[in-house]
């Protein structure tokens, strides 16, 4: 077991972690701000990937797809919030869960009807094809690009939340929506926009995953599980938690793959169980939630 191999394994783990962060981000934001556990998350991830494939096929440009598909699916997210989620805010928390759970099935079946069951090919954009020698081994250029995009998104999110007035309202609203209402802030509008943003990020994750994973109607089912694990480990609703947990899960899965490959999938859930035992609120979660 040489150091080069361990280095490559850590790198693959960190990159897998970045992919996991991207898949979990939209889920954790929506949960943190709205308190809605979005069980349609995986399906919307898949819809994002299909939207990306469609736009790329029509325009011939991956870059255009990367920009347009998340905005389009984010707009669908706005409609979902306005017409499906909003009527349920005053109802018990199980109702949005049931609704999004069902919505997930509807979206998957819808895509099956329109695009078939088999999945569609989607190639890596030509500028990012190939591998690069990092000294310890060869690594796909595209995956390095994905890390870059995820980092950029995180910086933008951080700036948006910490440095803008809108971000201040969002953060305050997540802590105490009632006081915000008393202060005259229209929480409905806020939730509307945050939901759309969360879905847009989810769709972006789908478009980014399309060149790496098989694009098929069921591609989202595992994503929902992954997003859930990362969110629980990081602390429900914490963006910093999602980032740390995503990378951590990536590293754990990667090192397990090296020493006990059969256990690679289980290791993710074992880590979640361990965190829940030691720190039930998650790494970055507030105990009160």
């Amino acid at each position: 077991m040489d150091l080069q191999l361990i280095g490559m394994q850590l790198l693959s783990g960190a990159v897998l972690g970045a992919v996991l962060v991207m898949t979990a981000l939209g889920f954790t934001i929506i949960f943190g701000m709205l308190g809605v556990v979005n069980f349609a998350h995986g399906a919307l991830f898949m819809v994002g990937a299909y939207a990306g494939v469609m736009v790329a096929m029509q325009t011939g440009s991956f870059w255009f797809a990367l920009l347009v598909a998340p905005i389009a699916v984010g707009a669908i997210g706005l409609l979902i919030e306005r017409f499906l989620i909003r009527p349920l805010y005053s109802r018990p928390p199980d109702d949005p869960i049931l609704l999004t759970f069902g919505l997930g099935y509807v979206l998957v079946e819808g895509v099956r009807i329109v695009f078939g069951n088999d999945g569609i090919p989607f190639s890596t954009p030509s500028a990012l094809v190939g591998v690069v020698n990092l000294g310890i081994g060869y690594f796909p250029i595209y995956r390095l690009f994905v890390i870059g995009v995820v980092a950029l998104i995180l910086v933008l999110l951080w700036l948006g939340l910490e440095k803008t007035r809108f971000g201040l309202i969002v953060r305050a609203g997540a802590r105490d929506p009632q006081i915000m209402r008393v202060l005259g802030v229209d929480m409905r509008r806020l939730w509307f926009l945050v939901f759309g943003l969360g879905i847009g990020l989810t769709a972006l994750g789908g478009v980014l995953a399309a060149p790496m994973r098989n694009v098929s109607p069921e591609m989202g089912s595992i994503v929902l599980a992954e997003a859930f694990v990362v969110t629980v480990i990081g602390g429900l609703g914490s963006i910093a938690g999602a980032v740390v947990a995503g990378i951590l899960v990536g590293l754990v899965v990667s090192m397990t793959s090296l020493f006990a490959p059969e256990m690679a999938t289980i290791s993710m859930f074992a880590l979640m169980a361990l965190v829940l035992l030691i720190r039930p609120q998650g790494l970055f979660g507030r105990a009160s939630i």
């Binding site: 040489d2 080069q4 191999l5 490559m8 394994q9 693959s12 783990g13 990159v15 897998l16 992919v19 081994g137 060869y138 995956r143 790496m212 994973r213 591609m219 595992i222 994503v223 992954e226 899965v253 990667s254 793959s257 090296l258 490959p261 059969e262 256990m263 690679a264 999938t265 289980i266």
Partner: peptide, 20 residues
């Protein structure tokens, strides 16, 4: 030889060992 769990979405973590 490497055995992988059924239905893994990402094989990237198995590949460095195979390359090695």
């Amino acid at each position: 030889e490497i055995l992988h769990p059924l239905g893994v979405p990402d094989y990237s973590t198995f590949l460095p060992r195979i390359s090695a």
